[in-house]
Design a protein around this nucleic acid. Structure first.
Length: 400
DNA sequence: TCTGGGGTCCTAGGACCC
DNA sequence: TCTGGGGTCCTAGGACCC
């Protein structure tokens, strides 16, 4: 049996803030959308959770529940740097480290036991190093499959170190609500409830044909989840990205076509810049809109030839926006996403003139040297529509 | 309470080709 | 004049995760 570990950083963003600003330790820290009229909570420290503040809760609600809370903006660059430091510590124990998000990673330590001791001893060493070197708390789950390791990590937080075995699947885990399983969300929970299935044990017992009547092909996957998951191996390193993009929610709904296109240009510019930064091209450009009624819709277009040129990407997105927004309805969100990613091909699209490529390269060079905000495309004006920067006195503007 | 931003994966239908 | 079946690509939308 392999020994798979899942390390999950406790209240990661809030903990990073408390670690780097000691005066925040012991205080209810709430990270996310601090200045935004339409923000939600990304992470709440355990002190804030005691007030009832939860992830994904609207910031306004969090303020009412926890008026004494310290509200902070998300500083993704800082969290990514710390995430890299955590991964470095994990790499001291095995090469088989698979980061799955900014605050979680799987490790396969089966081959490390002779050098470092049992899986439990390795997990304890990791927790200690992460605490001593980074000042952060983590929970680690151990199991023979990824699913059981993940479940184990969630059983005892924060600071837990929990092991689950295959035997637990038919024992202590039978009472677990199905919604605790990775991949079973609110919709699936409700559909299962209609079948009389609420717990892991009931999911084990329900006949497959009954499940198939409601879930078709997905029924087999559900059954596998109920038995502790499959045997997908831990793969070293990050998987290559399949899609990348940016989106923004306006502080007030926007109808103005010019403003929308200016915003779209900024989103295309940022997306294309990170595309080129990774040495990638895209074939498909998607535009996503959300209207005042929170209805989300979108459209996409696939190009004949992959591109990384800001100009062509914006031109494509702009045409999609015109089609999608012909009725001029008020919008609360606009987003751009690039997919069909491939490594930069020598064959370039007809529209990728040398002039455009030279301009993109120059922009990338300036940003690499002076920071992402050093340059903005003419017409890519987001400032008046960004979250609250126009409404909060003294708030930082987009000025460089 | 009034709903972020970054992703992955899946499904269903239609176009098109053989 | 009417009509099969398989494969692939594309689009739109949605569930789900952190």
């Amino acid at each position: 049996m392999p020994d798979i570990l899942l390390i999950d950083m406790d209240a990661f963003y809030a903990s990073v803030e408390q670690a780097r600003r000691p005066e925040l330790r012991g205080l209810p820290v709430i990270v996310g959308g601090a200045a935004a009229s339409r923000g939600v909570v990304s992470t709440a420290s355990y002190e804030a959770r005691a007030c009832g503040v939860r992830t994904a809760m609207p910031t306004g609600q969090a303020r009412r529940l926890c008026p004494q809370g310290v509200f902070l903006e998300v500083d993704m660059t800082a969290y990514q740097a710390v995430s890299g430091q955590v991964v470095e510590i994990l790499g001291r124990f095995t090469d088989l480290v698979e980061p799955v998000s900014i605050d979680e990673a799987f490790l396969d330590v089966t081959g490390s036991r002779r050098l470092f001791g049992s899986a439990q001893q390795i997990a304890a060493q990791i927790q200690k190093l992460v605490h001593v070197e980074l000042g952060l708390s983590s929970s680690i789950g151990i199991g023979p499959t990824r699913l059981l390791a993940k479940l184990a990590a969630e059983l005892d937080k924060p600071g837990g170190l929990t092991t689950l075995t295959k035997a637990d699947v038919h024992g202590r885990l039978r009472a677990l609500p199905v919604g605790k399983l990775y991949g079973i969300g609110p919709v699936a929970v409700e559909r299962l409830r209609l079948l009389g299935v609420a717990t892991l044990g009931q999911l084990q017992d329900v006949p497959l044909p009954v499940l198939e009547a409601s879930f078709a092909k997905a029924a087999a996957t559900l059954k596998q989840l109920a038995l502790g998951g499959g045997d997908e191996p831990v793969r070293a390193g990050h998987a290559p990205p399949k899609q990348l993009g940016h989106e923004v929610t306006f502080s007030c709904d926007v109808t103005d076509e010019g403003a929308l296109h200016a915003c779209l240009l900024d989103l295309c510019d940022r997306s294309a810049t990170s595309l080129r930064g990774k040495g990638l091209c895209c074939r498909t450009v998607s535009v996503k809109l959300r209207d005042e009624h929170f209805h989300t819709f979108g459209a996409q277009r696939t190009l004949q030839t992959p591109t990384s040129a800001t100009g062509l990407i914006f031109q494509t997105a702009s045409a999609l926006l015109c089609e999608l927004h012909s009725d001029g309805r008020p919008l609360r969100l606009i987003g751009v996403s690039l997919s069909g990613l491939c490594v930069e091909a020598p064959q370039l699209a007809f529209e990728d003139s040398w002039r455009q490529r030279a301009s993109d390269a120059a922009v990338d060079a300036v940003r690499a040297k002076y920071g992402k905000a050093a340059l903005r495309r003419a017409g890519a004006d987001l400032a008046p529509y960004r979250q609250r920067s126009d409404l909060v006195p003294g708030a930082r503007t987009e000025d460089e």
